[in-house]
């Protein structure tokens, strides 16, 4: 495997050519915030917190560090004014779901985010998909999945599978940056004990 040289925040970094910008930055001790990223899982590029400015072959664009492959002579800037603004707004959007999330709180100060900027939401879920993807990709059980699209998208356990698999696993619980997952699970458990059948969301 070859090695490429790139510049991240003015620092020369050598990285293996199969690495992502995020991995290269981490190897050089440069911190890029992430939420939906997990090293055991495929890049997901959904939370967008890891967005960085990437300059390669004369083209400058914003891209997610968790998915962007490193290239020779690439120049990466991880904390431009635009990026800070993007991260701040993204955090504020997520805080409307989970104002007390510790992972979000840890970033609030650094980015000057205001947790009350947007109206509060009923659901804690910030749709990082860690539970869904971990269960499918690592545990191969798919006991929890997404349903619906757009603003109605949410996580949903499949009761038949959850009742068999989850009690002894619960590995996804600690991945969840908010309390959404546990709430959804407890809700499912309550449902299963009420009735053996599951109801799918009927509304689109």
């Amino acid at each position: 495997m070859g090695v490429v040289t790139l510049t991240i925040d003015n620092k020369e970094v050598k990285a293996k050519e199969e690495m992502t910008v995020l991995e290269a930055a981490q190897s050089a001790g440069i911190d890029i915030p992430t939420l939906c990223h997990h090293e055991k899982l495929e890049p997901y590029t959904a939370c967008r917190l890891c967005m960085v400015e990437v300059e390669s072959r004369g083209r400058v664009k914003l891209d997610t560090a968790c998915s962007s492959p490193v290239k020779e002579n690439m120049v990466v800037r991880t904390k431009t004014e635009d990026i800070i603004k993007i991260r701040r707004t993204l955090l504020e959007l997520m805080l409307s779901h989970a104002p007390d999330s510790r992972e979000l709180q840890a970033l609030v100060k650094e980015y000057g985010a205001d947790k009350d900027r947007f109206e509060k939401e009923a659901s804690f879920c910030i749709h990082c998909g860690l539970c869904v993807r971990y269960c499918a990709e690592v545990k191969k059980k798919s006991a929890v999945g997404f349903i619906n699209s757009g603003v109605r998208r949410e996580i949903s356990f499949v009761p038949e599978i959850a009742s068999k698999e989850c009690w002894n696993c619960k590995e996804c619980f600690e991945l969840c940056p908010t309390e959404a997952l546990q709430t959804a699970y407890l809700f499912t458990v309550a449902q299963i004990s009420d009735s053996p059948s599951f109801e799918l969301e009927s509304e689109k």
């Binding site: 499918a136 798919s142 006991a143 999945g145 349903i147 699209s149 949903s156 038949e160 599978i161 799918l200």
Partner: peptide
């Protein structure tokens, strides 16, 4: 195909009806 994926498919695409 996992039930989770089928649930998602059936609620993601607008053509499907679950009632």
């Amino acid at each position: 195909v996992s039930l989770a994926q089928i649930q998602h498919t059936a609620t993601f695409y607008k053509a499907f009806r679950l009632v």
